[in-house]
């Protein structure tokens, strides 16, 4: 049975639909991403799961429970890191960890959690004096402190520097290894590609694609890009005859760029060999989720 079920979820603010029929399920142990541009309705969807908002229509279930009607049971198994929230500025890290531990019937020990998140030498520092990365790590600790089965992490690494972001990603992989299901709300492609088992791409309140990161990339035309400088010109008809070509461009310095798939690469290599053309400065880059995402959300608008 899926641990998170969302079906036909709708929510409007002032008559404007923000979430417009979102459905997906998350299996236990997965890292599931809600990916989309700002204002796509990701956070509102997450807030309906967290019991912070009442859906206008549709069903939301966490381990079969309704976040509104079964508020207390849901809060015990669902850990939350909110997009924008703070703690009392003069509360120390230790006090925050002790306080939130006391909220749960069977809390995870806060000391190992603090150690895992690198907060052990920050225990006596007040929340207001922590750096952005330290605050974020404390919020991850608080999301995990109740020993949850599911955690919702909303814009986990927004505002962090690249180093802190990478450290946080490693932490999340460590959390998943303990068997906790993670719902990751993000607009960072790199983050989603690195962490998620499956991703729902949300745009304008709807799910426009739902697949593994590789699946999302692979189904997008032009996901592999080949760039090279031919030793002598190639016949345009030969290039156009290559399979699965999405686009061909020629730069002023004679460099040729072809967007296609793996199939295109193989065919190009044999074409060059047949014509005895040498490819200088040959680069083959596989597409990124970024490309796939831009295409998916472009089509919508």
């Amino acid at each position: 049975m899926p641990i998170i079920e969302v079906s036909g979820l709708r929510k409007s603010y002032g008559g404007r639909p923000v979430v417009d029929g979102v459905s997906f399920t998350v299996e236990e142990g997965e890292i599931f991403g809600l990916l989309g541009p700002n204002g796509a309705g990701k956070t509102t969807t997450a807030e309906c799961l967290e019991g912070l908002r009442v859906p206008d229509a549709g069903e939301v279930r966490v381990a079969g429970l309704d976040p509104i009607a079964d508020r207390e049971e849901v809060t015990r198994i669902l850990g939350v890191q909110l997009q924008e929230s703070e703690l009392q500025p003069k509360l120390t890290v230790r006090e925050a960890l002790e306080l939130y531990s006391a909220f749960y019937p069977a809390p995870a020990g806060w000391r190992p959690l603090a150690a895992m998140l690198g907060l052990t030498d920050r225990l006596d520092i007040r929340f207001g004096r922590l750096s952005g990365g330290q605050k974020q790590r404390l919020f991850i600790a608080l999301a995990l402190i109740g020993g949850p089965r599911v955690v919702v992490l909303d814009e986990l690494t927004t505002g962090l520097d690249p180093r802190a972001r990478r450290d946080t990603w490693e932490l999340i992989e460590g959390v998943r290894a303990t068997g906790v299901t993670i719902l990751l709300v993000t607009h960072f492609m790199e983050e989603a590609q690195r962490l998620c088992d499956r991703i729902a791409v949300i745009d304008a309140g709807r799910v426009v694609a739902l697949d593994t990161p590789d699946g999302l990339i692979g189904h997008t035309a032009g996901s592999t890009v080949i760039t090279f400088l031919p030793s002598h010109p190639i016949d345009a008809a030969d290039l156009a005859g290559l399979p699965a070509v999405a686009s061909i461009t020629h730069a002023g310095n004679g460099e040729t760029t072809i967007a296609g798939t793996d199939q295109t690469v193989e065919a190009l290599v044999s074409l060059l060999a047949r014509r005895q053309i040498t490819a200088h400065r040959l680069r083959v880059t596989s597409g990124t989720l970024n490309d796939a995402f831009l295409r998916l959300t472009d089509r919508e608008s």
Binding site: G51, L52, T75, V80, L82, S85, L87, Q88, F103, Y104
Partner: peptide, 16 residues
């Protein structure tokens, strides 16, 4: 300020 800074909101996602 507890409301403005989301402290009450954060707490409402816990059993308390």
């Amino acid at each position: 300020s507890y409301r403005e800074h989301g402290i009450l909101r954060r707490m409402s996602t816990t059993p308390v």
